[in-house]
Design a protein around this nucleic acid. Sequence first.
DNA 1: CCAATAGTGTCTCTGAGACATTATCCC
DNA 2: GGGATAATGTCTCAGAGACACTATTGG
Lengths: 240, 240
Amino acid sequence: MNPVICTVDVVLLTLQDDALKVALLQREREPFAHMPALPGGYIHADEDQDAKSAALRVLREKTGISPPYLEQLATFSGPTRDPRGWSVSIIYYALVSYPVLLGNPVSAADASTLPAGHAAANGLPAALRLHDILHLPTLPFDHTSIIDTAVKRLRQKSQYSSLPCYLAGEQFTLPQLQRIYEALMGEPLNKVSFRRKMDEMAMLEKVSGQFSAAGAHRPAQLYRLKAKFAQELTLLQRGL
Amino acid sequence: MNPVICTVDVVLLTLQDDALKVALLQREREPFAHMPALPGGYIHADEDQDAKSAALRVLREKTGISPPYLEQLATFSGPTRDPRGWSVSIIYYALVSYPVLLGNPVSAADASTLPAGHAAANGLPAALRLHDILHLPTLPFDHTSIIDTAVKRLRQKSQYSSLPCYLAGEQFTLPQLQRIYEALMGEPLNKVSFRRKMDEMAMLEKVSGQFSAAGAHRPAQLYRLKAKFAQELTLLQRGL
DNA sequence: CCAATAGTGTCTCTGAGACATTATCCC
DNA sequence: GGGATAATGTCTCAGAGACACTATTGG
């Protein structure tokens, strides 16, 4: 009836050393075999409940990762984006903290103690690499444009939502969270206002009695997302 | 390779008498023949440049309308939404002013002089009907849920963008535009603040010397969207 | 005690809303 | 002139940011 190729792809983003990184997987098959590209694959009509399930399955099968946050970005389509023919790709974007990405679901507080550079020698497939979004290699299909759209969406939503919390891991301090927001927005934020806004969103809860000990100074209170917000965003009326 | 049905559908919205209406088309073919549904159809791999072109083509072919604003909403998918099989539908939403919908591309100022009730006896197909979004009939597929998503998106974007301008026609006065914003947001707006915000967005220009004469009172200045914003939104930093 | 960072109290200034005033039409 | 709505000037109050001060750790 209509010979349209239908796939899903995932833009998996993480923050490492205040730099936004995207996870790219070396392609095994043609077209563009051996080039780094977004993890993706065909929808399996016999097992997927919808495109989101397909995206989660593809990510799990190809990278072993089950991200805490996954949302539809947009659908890209056209006759030339894939050499195999007229294609449609439903794109999802996912956020995961760098420690959790490495299979260490503890705290963003420990991020600095993890090995820097490429993800490797962990539970992750060797073909998976993190790339700074400012220095992307040449990518197949329209993946460069897709990543650009995902980063714009992330930055836009960071202005007025709790989205960046998913880059912070399971437990984090307010100064750490502020650094994440600042890295995404590209500008320093007022500490008092930032804390007022986080309080206003009412999505964080103290991890009782737990503090992050990170040097010769007063330790910071640890927080985590309230269970209610594990998959759901909080929005601000007026932005940060 | 994968037998996924791939279509596009359009949620065409307009504002009539301060009520949001969606254009539904009586289906000609199975499944769900003769039921009202969103205008939609298959992607034509031989002529469509992308899904957006397909949506515009479908809208033109089935309703004769070329909307001033059309944007991708989301992609809906799953094994059961279409009885023909696992399906993907890329949804677009379009905004058009009621007078322009009726083929009268003049001014929102004249909307009150047009016949109320259903669109009929115009250049529009007889099978096309406007339905108040608060009183929708039972719809096939997941079209009810799709319309709900589109309305939520429109209302969300109205909070901080120039989106509602596309519901106002080519020329309009500021009081008319404020009524549109108020109808979408469901609450009265401060006149002074509203005008400050419209000025801040810097997207309107006076139609020189033209005024809307609408009764025994001072006439209002007519405005139109600057050409630059014919297809592109303006965003506010802090909402209305 | 000192250095360093966390957390909070308070002042100021911007900006949004309320109100009032002026402007311009038809009758 | 009167009634009606458009357009704008101005006052007030809330909220965001700047600054400063206190708190708590390790050395």
